[in-house]
Amino acid sequence: MDFLSNTTHFHIFTWVVGIIVFLVAAVLANGTKGKKIAHMIARLFYVLILFSGVMLFTKSMNYGMGAQYGIKFLLGLLTIGMMEMVLVRSEKGKSVTLFWVLFFVFLFATMFLGFKLPMGWELF
């Protein structure tokens, strides 16, 4: 399992694929078998994102920035929560506009903080 915690590659791969699957599930028609399958695959990737995130979070304690990584972890949980809320509420036919907005706000904040922290890429 060392290959999962040495770099951020696996974590980035899981959230990129997770977001793509989420967007595919969000645009599919309600009640179709394809939407249910895409939703279940998205849930699998939520678990993989959380698993790889926990692995990186435990590694981040070596950097002495545990609080900032904790905030990023919390923002990541909120992002995943909004993804799930969009899919579940759209399946029930309820309004999802607020959850879409919150999803993009939390996603932007999580990515910004993730790229800014020492284990991230030097983008900012």
Rank of each mutant, 00 (worst) to 15 (best):
F3S: 15
I12L: 13
F13M: 14
F13C: 09
T14W: 11
T14A: 15
W15G: 04
V16W: 11
I20G: 00
F22D: 00
F22M: 08
L23T: 09
V24E: 08
A25C: 10
A29M: 07
A29Y: 08
N30G: 09
N30C: 00
N30A: 11
T32A: 09
G34H: 06
K36E: 12
K36H: 12
M40N: 12
I41Q: 01
I41N: 01
I41D: 02
I41H: 10
A42W: 03
A42I: 00
A42Y: 03
V47N: 10
L50A: 13
L50E: 06
F51L: 15
S52A: 13
G53F: 08
L56I: 08
F57Y: 14
T58D: 09
K59S: 05
S60I: 04
N62E: 14
Y63L: 15
Y63N: 10
G64D: 06
G70N: 07
G70R: 04
K72Q: 11
K72R: 12
F73G: 06
L78V: 08
T79A: 13
M85V: 15
V88F: 13
V88P: 05
S90L: 00
K94A: 14
S95Q: 11
V96H: 01
V96I: 15
T97P: 00
L98H: 13
L98G: 11
F99K: 12
L102Q: 02
V105T: 06
F108V: 14
F112Y: 13
K116T: 04
K116C: 02
W121T: 07
W121R: 10
E122W: 14
E122R: 10
